[in-house]
Lab assay of single mutants.
Amino acid sequence: MAAAAAAGAGPEMVRGQVFDVGPRYTNLSYIGEGAYGMVCSAYDNVNKVRVAIKKISPFEHQTYCQRTLREIKILLRFRHENIIGINDIIRAPTIEQMKDVYIVQDLMETDLYKLLKTQHLSNDHICYFLYQILRGLKYIHSANVLHRDLKPSNLLLNTTCDLKICDFGLARVADPDHDHTGFLTEYVATRWYRAPEIMLNSKGYTKSIDIWSVGCILAEMLSNRPIFPGKHYLDQLNHILGILGSPSQEDLNCIINLKARNYLLSLPHKNKVPWNRLFPNADSKALDLLDKMLTFNPHKRIEVEQALAHPYLEQYYDPSDEPIAEAPFKFDMELDDLPKEKLKELIFEETARFQPGYRS
């Protein structure tokens, strides 16, 4: 834990890192770190609560700039109880001085990944967590956004079992017609939660990839272990087919990539493993919904509104309290091709509203 900075004593240090967030945020305490930044909790002297502050230093890398800009653009436009918001952003007053960006968010005690390492969940908890994931996802999908990296560590939890989806750095506007060349190379989302079509096709992607990830998360809540822990690309596919069985001819016809289709045709026939054999203690309604989410063919996979209306979630289902976005989200430009200098300018502009004396 960093010592509390005395008023006016300059930035606090946390594990050798400068955290320049005073005077409003003090009493910093280390939480963890990701690929390009550290997260601390801090005391907000204005709202009198502890908050989470993520320090991001992305400006050396085009990919990190892209992810940072995506996350900020999306989260500043989203407003939903099951999606983490941005409360404040701290950065230098000029673009030349801006080396880091500090993002202030609600402090959540833990995440689903940490929880599943230590606790076996009751059916009631599984049901409530799944409902909140789908409630947040309904809003995301209504904005025409794909999260693309749903996994237990991106689901934040607090002691009252509130759940918030975080990390929109890989999110995209849904565009089933656009052929994202190089899709697989830039697709760094965790393999275990990846839909089979991501490994088999490169053309376009749809909201059904997020539903697949939610199915993987439900299976993990039922058993405290990942359902498809593939060691590499082909191993991942083999794990999936080992449980779902061989795809039907109709399902194979959806695979545009001939090499991928021929690979699947070359494999020995596998039978589907019954879900109640894998999860003998699970609620039968939970397994019915799991089956509809972990469907090989993305066109037959359940959609988020149908999933919310499934009998497993009937005690929570309330369409009048499951809000959607006001308007579909649009990125003005494809960020993939922009140089990091341009992305830095866009991050600077996007964060201006939090600067003292800002006038829109």
Rank of each mutant, 00 (worst) to 15 (best):
A2I: 00
A3K: 08
A5C: 09
A6E: 13
A7N: 08
E12H: 10
M13W: 02
R15S: 15
D20L: 03
G22C: 11
T26G: 03
T26N: 14
S29H: 01
S29D: 00
G32T: 04
G34Q: 00
Y36R: 15
A42I: 01
Y43L: 12
D44T: 05
N45L: 13
V46C: 13
A52N: 05
I53K: 01
K54G: 05
K55C: 14
K55Q: 14
P58K: 15
T63A: 12
C65D: 06
Q66V: 14
Q66H: 15
L69D: 00
L69E: 03
L75M: 15
L76Q: 14
R77G: 07
I83D: 00
I83N: 13
I86D: 11
N87Y: 15
D88S: 00
P93V: 05
E96R: 09
E96A: 10
M98V: 00
M98G: 14
K99A: 11
V101Y: 11
V101K: 08
Y102G: 00
D106T: 04
L107D: 12
T110C: 10
L112F: 06
K114F: 05
L116Q: 14
H125F: 05
H125C: 03
H125W: 02
C127I: 11
C127R: 09
F129I: 15
F129R: 10
L130A: 07
Y131T: 02
Q132I: 06
I133Q: 03
I133K: 03
L134C: 02
L137F: 00
L137T: 12
Y139M: 10
Y139C: 11
Y139S: 12
I140P: 04
H141M: 10
H141A: 07
H141G: 12
A143D: 14
L146Y: 05
H147A: 08
R148W: 08
D149N: 11
D149H: 03
L150P: 12
P152A: 06
P152V: 04
L157M: 11
N158E: 08
N158H: 10
T160S: 15
C161S: 15
C161D: 04
L163P: 09
L163F: 01
D167K: 01
D167W: 01
F168Q: 09
G169P: 02
A171L: 10
A171D: 09
A171S: 14
D175C: 06
P176W: 05
D177K: 07
H180E: 10
H180Q: 14
H180Y: 12
G182Y: 13
T185P: 15
V188T: 06
A189I: 04
W192H: 03
E197M: 01
M199N: 05
M199W: 07
G204W: 14
Y205F: 14
T206A: 12
K207R: 11
S208A: 14
I211N: 15
G215L: 07
E220M: 06
M221G: 02
S223G: 12
P229Q: 06
G230F: 05
G230N: 00
Y233M: 10
D235L: 09
L237E: 08
N238A: 09
I240Y: 05
I243S: 12
P247Y: 08
P247S: 11
Q249H: 14
E250F: 08
E250N: 10
N253I: 15
I255A: 06
I256R: 11
A260E: 07
Y263K: 07
L264I: 03
L265Q: 14
L267I: 03
K270T: 05
K270D: 07
K270R: 04
K272M: 08
V273H: 03
P274L: 09
W275S: 07
R277Y: 05
F279K: 06
N281R: 05
A282L: 01
D283G: 02
S284Q: 09
S284C: 07
L290C: 10
D291G: 01
M293T: 07
L294W: 07
L294T: 09
K300W: 10
R301L: 03
E305H: 05
H310F: 00
H310K: 02
Q315K: 13
Y316W: 02
Y316A: 01
Y317F: 15
Y317R: 00
D318R: 02
D321M: 04
A325R: 09
P328E: 00
F331E: 08
F331I: 15
D336H: 00
L338T: 08
P339E: 09
P339R: 09
K342P: 10
K344Q: 02
E350I: 00
T351N: 10
F354R: 03
F354L: 11
R359T: 09
